[in-house]
Amino acid sequence: MLIDINNLTFAYGHKVVLHDLSLTIKPGDFVVVSGKNGSGKSTLVKCLLGINAVSNGVIFFNHEDINYFKKWTEIGYVPQKFDDFNYEFPITVSEILSVSKLHKTPEALKLKLLDDMGILENMNDSINSLSGGQIQRVFVVRAMLNHPRLLILDEPTASIDRKNVEYFRKTVNRLHAEGVTIILISHEQSLDELDYTHELHLDPNLEHTYKARPVQPPTEDIA
């Protein structure tokens, strides 16, 4: 297993957001985390990323307690919004990717990833000239350049149009097909177009469900 969550309970003060959550994610799984606003999706991500300290229950990443985990380079994370990224200072897509890789990535791989995401022609554009959907894809490429064992993606919604959400979902399907383990936080009602293997549904009333998806015929890939 890659991730093992055992009896995780998390509260902000007296407000319990996650209660007794247990699940296992194996390498190659594609887990969609769904649920309404306030159901604990972001809280779960923060626990997985070590931003929220887990004190009640335990999360193991590759058999290591997340509270003592140090190899964060094994996880790629793409947030929903990039409020923390300082856009106003000029920086090109290419520069972001060149300074953000840990290993010397072959140029061909970088170009392939950019091409796969449909942003190859934007390589020399300044990041602040791109749309929300394109920026999201740039950061997916950035996360992928480090060959993460797990990719955690917070699906964009409000900031980008429907067409871009569809493109984003097809991109995620492609990464999953290539064997990447994915946790996708979905803010959309519909999970159509996603080739996920498991769904974790979080509920504001703390009734969580985690189930494997019945086998589906594969969706059409992007041309």
Binding site: W72, N86, E95
Partner: peptide, 19 residues
């Protein structure tokens, strides 16, 4: 440390994912 400087400067939160 160009890579580290730019990565942390533009987005502190991403630093740990880059080691």
């Amino acid at each position: 440390f160009f890579r580290q400087i730019i990565s942390v400067s533009f987005e502190e939160g991403n630093a740990k994912f880059l080691g």
